[in-house]
């Protein structure tokens, strides 16, 4: 409960400081929505010409892109610093969070809000509404799937960025991992053979952020729900575990400090 109050206070402060740059805030939010719309237009063109990719149609794309955008947006809003965690670690700035009496990981990742995330978050709902699959119980499933997909995404960020505890600055790797996650999440999952799919559930869990939630939103199945639940719990557990192992290393002073 105390932790929740603390998070609410941080989020409020983040929002306030984002509003401090009002033009920036508005332009990032609206700009991101326009940006997403233009990007998606290319898929509309694609499916207009080629109809479907092994049974995956444009409606599926709308939902997949929607859930991906919303999950990405939610993490950007609430845990925006997760995108920069490796920087925080490698430059020794965890000291600050360690000196305060709050959960280190939670405090560190929630300390920044990415304003454009607001645009992503809302755009996702819009994309779902336009998909042709919209229904009110579907919206409920959308919200549930959104929370689980965001959990997987946050866990993925924490995992990849925590490697900085062992390898120091690795901006390129983090960017590569993030790009791979988003790209593989958007593309029709029917493109991939079984080997590739194994990767999309494990190493780069893009399926748990895009295709599976999309399947669940379209129609309830126990299979997709359990996949998402197990995925979310498993990944967040793993992420917290790895982060804490790294933190031990950090506290013992052996985390790598890279010369800038």
């Amino acid at each position: 409960m105390k932790t929740l109050q603390f998070l609410l206070a941080i989020w409020k402060a983040n929002l306030q400081s984002a509003l401090e740059y009002r033009v920036s805030f508005l332009s990032q939010m609206i700009g991101m929505m326009v940006n997403n719309f233009i990007y998606f237009a290319i898929w509309i063109i694609f499916f207009d010409r080629f109809k479907d990719v092994r049974g995956w149609g444009v409606g599926d794309m709308y939902i997949t892109f929607g859930i991906l955008a919303s999950a990405f947006g939610l993490v950007s809003i609430l845990f925006g610093n997760a995108f920069m965690l490796s920087d925080v670690i490698a430059k020794g700035r965890l000291d600050y969070y360690l000196s305060l009496p709050k959960p280190v990981l939670l405090h560190a990742i929630s300390s920044r809000m990415v304003a454009s995330g607001v645009g992503d978050f809302f755009y996702g709902f819009l994309s779902y509404a336009l998909s042709g699959y919209f229904s009110w119980d579907g919206l409920l499933r959308y919200v549930l799937a959104l929370l689980l997909a965001a959990t997987v995404f946050a866990a993925f960020l924490i995992l990849t960025q925590s490697l900085a505890f062992w390898f120091g600055m690795m901006n390129n790797f983090s960017a590569l991992a993030l790009n791979a996650m988003l790209t593989f999440g958007i593309y029709p999952i029917t493109l991939f053979d079984n080997y590739a799919k194994i990767i999309l559930f494990t190493l780069i869990p893009a399926a748990l952020m895009g295709a599976i939630p999309a399947e669940f939103i379209r129609a309830f199945t126990w299979q997709s729900l359990s996949q998402m639940l197990i995925g979310a719990i498993g990944f967040i557990g793993l992420a917290v575990f790895v982060f804490n192992r790294g933190l031990k290393r950090y506290e013992s002073g052996s985390a790598i400090q890279v010369e800038v």
Binding site: K12, L15, Q16, L19, E20, R22, F25, L26
Partner: peptide
Amino acid sequence: RKAAGLGASMKSLFKP
């Protein structure tokens, strides 16, 4: 210019 507080932040968002 802006006064402190979330309300003032919101206000200055639309009417700086």
